[in-house]
């Protein structure tokens, strides 16, 4: 076959091996490019930015650690940290507990179980914005569905979202609505527990509680541990509910940490301080996860091998 003296001859590698390599690089290029442009580059920029005073409008000015010093002096930093920690302390364990209970129920063999599984998972499919607006309506003091129910049975109205002492707990309540995603993970875990253990326990005369305590929970511990770690990471980054339902209020009672970052950056245009806040959050999450691995990770049961 005659050699075609076109562009391909000049540009493409000449050996099969080199061509295969090129092909491989091209295939991973979209990911690598994306990773570089939208992860590595912004991360590097955020490191640089954390040491600058920059309002996006006038040129940045190097101020070294002043952003970190000023955020420590900022009451709202501590307030947002407090709000986020309280939210995490309640939302994560409650979600895990309830999701586990629901998963146990959903693992029983009854008619129509697929329907119920779908039902509990359905809220996860609802877009976060739509869900938030829906809950804002339900929890409205004057016209909300929940208060109409309370009034109907003769109870006083509760100021779910407008009372600074209640608003955060209302949002924790709302967060439980999305327990379906955790439930599905538990359900998958439960279905992976071999029946032979339960059969053996039956023969030994173990009751339900004993089976749960000595078979289900130990065998599920890797899954539970996974949801704990992911739950905490996710909970420290919570944003949507605070942004859409309460706007961080009343009186900063629901000012989540990430909402505070967003406001610092895109409302008050202190990009440097916002970057510094982000790095502080990163360090907090890494430290928390390390602590969890050290103190709880040891009691996780990995298929007979202790970790």
């Amino acid at each position: 076959m005659p050699v075609n003296p076109g562009w391909r001859t000049r540009l493409l590698p000449h050996t099969n091996r080199a061509r295969r390599n090129l092909m491989g690089y091209l295939f991973i290029a979209p990911f690598l490019l994306g990773f570089l442009l939208w992860f590595l580059l912004p991360t590097a920029t955020a490191i640089w930015m954390a040491f600058q005073d920059w309002n996006m409008m006038t040129p940045p000015r190097f101020i070294f650690l002043e952003n970190f010093a000023s955020l420590l002096r900022d009451e709202l930093f501590w307030q947002s940290l407090k709000v986020t920690v309280i939210y995490t302390l309640f939302s994560v364990p409650l979600t895990m507990l309830l999701a586990f209970a629901v998963a146990l129920l959903m693992n029983t063999k009854v008619r129509g179980i697929h329907f119920f599984r779908t039902l509990y998972y359905l809220p996860v499919v609802v877009p976060a914005v739509a869900g938030s607006i829906l809950w804002a309506w339900i929890l409205n003091t004057e016209f909300g569905f929940l208060n109409i129910l309370l009034r109907a049975v003769g109870l006083p109205k509760v100021r779910w979202l407008v009372d600074p002492n209640l608003a955060l707990f209302s949002l924790i309540l709302v967060s439980l609505w999305g327990l379906g995603s955790t439930m599905v993970i538990y359900l998958a875990g439960l279905q992976g527990v071999p029946d032979v253990y339960y059969e053996a326990a039956d023969i030994d005369g173990a009751g339900r509680w004993h089976k749960l305590r000595h078979i289900t929970i130990p065998l599920m511990s890797p899954v539970i541990f996974f949801t704990l770690v992911m739950g905490i990471i996710g909970s420290f980054q919570v944003f949507t509910a605070g942004y859409l339902i309460t706007g961080g209020g009343p009186d900063n009672a629901t000012l989540f940490y990430v909402l505070h970052i967003y406001r610092t950056g895109f409302k008050n245009f202190h990009m440097g301080e916002a970057a510094a806040l982000s790095w502080v959050l990163f360090v907090i999450i890494v430290a928390l996860v390390a602590i969890i691995f050290k103190y709880i990770g040891g009691s996780v049961h990995y298929g007979g091998r202790e970790s």
Binding site: M1, T9, T15, M23, P30, L33
Partner: peptide
Amino acid sequence: MDGKMLSRREMLRLTAVVAAGASLA
């Protein structure tokens, strides 16, 4: 077959990769 030529299958693959890269860009 000449080593410097692309087969049609390779050409298609290449096209797909380039298209993906272009949409990224």
